[in-house]
Each structure stands twice: as C-alpha cells, then as structure tokens.
C-alpha cells in the first residue's frame, strides 16, 4: 500500500513505520497511480536532470536576450563578476538558477519544476549541490523524487499555480522542493527535511505574482535566484536541528489560505505590484500587441 500524499505527517509516519527512505513511497505512489515501472521513473528523472543541467549550461554560454529585451544575459554577467559577495559557490549557484530561468524566458528547453515560471530553481540548487558535495547522480535523482513528493502535497493542500496562489505557489513551492532535496541528499533526518520545507515556505509566504507586461521575465528571473538562496539558507538552518515551530502541514495550509485571500491583481494578471508601476506600464505599452480587434458584442 502506498501513501496517498495527503500530508507530510502521513508521509513521515509511513516512512518511520516501515523504515524507508523518503523517496520510496513517492516511487510507490507513481507506480500505483500511473502504472509506471520503477525503471521508467528513474529514466524519466535522469532525462529531467539532464535537461536541467543543459539549461544551466545554455544560459551560461549562449546569448540570452528575450524578445522584450528585459532579459539580457544577466546570468553570465553574475557568473563572470570578479567580486564574490559571499563565496564563489554562492555566486555560481545564483548564476545557475538565473541561467536556467533565462533559458525559459528565451524560448529554450527547460523542465517545469513544478512550473515553467520556477524552472530555474531546482537546476540552480541541484547542479551546485552535486558539484560541491560530490554526490552521485542516483542521490540527486532520489532528491528529485523527494521534491516531487513535496510538490504533490503542496498541490493538494494549497496550489502550485501563480494564477491561483501568487508567486509563493510557484517559486515558493520550488524553493520548498529544493530545500527538502538538499537536506535529504546531505543525509538529514526526515524531521530535518520537513523542517527545511516548512522554513522555506515561511520565508516565501505572501509573495505575489506581478509580472511586468504579463511576461515570465521580471521579476520571475531574479526571484528564481532568491528562491534558490532561501532554499539553501533554510536547509542550513534545518540541518542544525532548528525547528520550524509551525509544522510543515500547517505552513502549507497557511500558504493556501494566503493564496485564496490574495487579490486577483496579484495573481498573474499583471494588474498590480511591479506590473502596475509607471515603468512597468510603459514597458507593457511597448511590448504588448496593440493591434487588437474589439468585437461588437450585444
């Protein structure tokens, strides 16, 4: 019998009862719900991770200018900047997240994880985690399964869509997935993994989706970098056994509640926040289609 992923508590209980690592029930879930074989799942994950790595490489090496001009090779500039504000690793991690997300904005190939708007976060986190800690591919793929489990529960109890729950639902969820994967891959306990998820959600709560001109560019790209940074900071905190105090399931509930009460103009409609600023509106005027027919409706 597999856990049906209603909440984190049941996932933890199941794993502790059967003495299983966190990724196993996710694998079982996929087999039961979708009828996919274990081999199919590992291959699919390997392919996804490969595309993530390619996206980082593409973003760091090729010309990344979006049609609107708002995205203009930011990842490369960060990567090659001589001054490290924190460390070389931190700079590389930030630029990897930016790179993969810029590829998305510039019509390159990415993995929506969980969404296209958040597609830089897991690549930024995982490629650098693997490099810094010399982790095996297998370990990273297990981490991806844990991340998928985290997203499945968030989807069921809150939302993963910016149009439903704001940016917290997209980049917030991706960061939570990443934080859980980091702690899992570094050998943290289940409690530590879920504390990392909870702390990440606490840091991302309330973030609105206010994309300039309605495009997945500003502030989406820089938020992919900051979400990846928050995932690392939460993982560092959780690994030291610092408690989230509010249990992870309740943090997800809070995220759902905030998403529901968020005004529509902050949910991907480009009517509020950064999109509604004078500059935001000027850019919208410039890049949006103006030649639109308006029907005479009775």
């Amino acid at each position: 019998m597999s856990v049906l992923f209603d909440n984190f508590r049941a996932w933890q209980q199941y794993c502790e009862q059967h003495n299983l690592p966190l990724y196993v029930p996710v694998l079982e879930y996929e087999r039961e719900q979708k009828g996919n074989s274990e081999e199919f799942v590992w291959q699919g994950l390997a392919r996804a991770y490969q595309v993530m790595k390619e996206a980082v490489q593409t973003g760091l090496t090729q010309d990344m200018r979006s049609r609107s001009g708002m995205i203009n090779n930011g990842a490369k500039k960060v990567f090659h900047h001589p001054l490290n504000v924190l460390s070389q690793e931190f700079k590389e991690m930030i630029s990897s997240a930016l790179a993969a997300k810029e590829v998305n904005s510039c019509m390159g190939r990415i993995v929506a994880a969980p969404t296209a708007g958040a597609s830089g976060i897991l690549p930024g986190i995982l490629t650098n985690l693997q490099k810094i800690h010399r982790l095996s591919d297998r370990k990273i793929l297990e981490g991806l399964l844990v991340a998928a489990g985290i997203a499945l529960i968030i989807e069921q109890n809150a939302s993963l869509a910016g149009a439903v729950g704001g940016c917290q639902a997209e980049t917030g969820s991706a960061a939570a997935m990443g934080a859980g994967a980091i702690v899992y891959c570094l050998g943290g306990s289940i409690t530590q993994v879920f504390n990392a998820v909870a702390i990440t959600i606490q840091c991302m709560l309330g973030l609105v989706c206010d994309p300039v001109a309605g495009l997945v560019e500003v502030p989406c790209v820089v938020r992919n970098a900051s979400a990846a940074a928050i995932a690392y900071s939460s993982a560092q905190i959780a690994l030291a056994d610092v408690s989230s105090v509010i249990p992870v399931d309740e943090c997800v509930q809070a995220m759902g509640e905030i998403g529901q009460s968020m005004e529509t103009r902050y949910k991907e409609t480009a009517l509020g926040g950064l999109a509604a600023t004078p500059t935001g509106q000027q850019i919208a005027q410039k890049v949006l289609i103006q030649d639109i027919e308006i029907l005479n409706e009775e």
Partner: peptide
C-alpha cells in the same frame, strides 16, 4: 497528478 507533472513537463519556455 504524477511525479512527472511536478518534475516536468520538459518543454520549450516560457509558459506552460
């Protein structure tokens, strides 16, 4: 949803 709805789809950006 399945895990490849969470880690995926693999697609050309920017928007699903």
């Amino acid at each position: 949803s399945g895990i490849f709805d969470m880690i995926g789809p693999i697609m050309i950006g920017p928007s699903s």
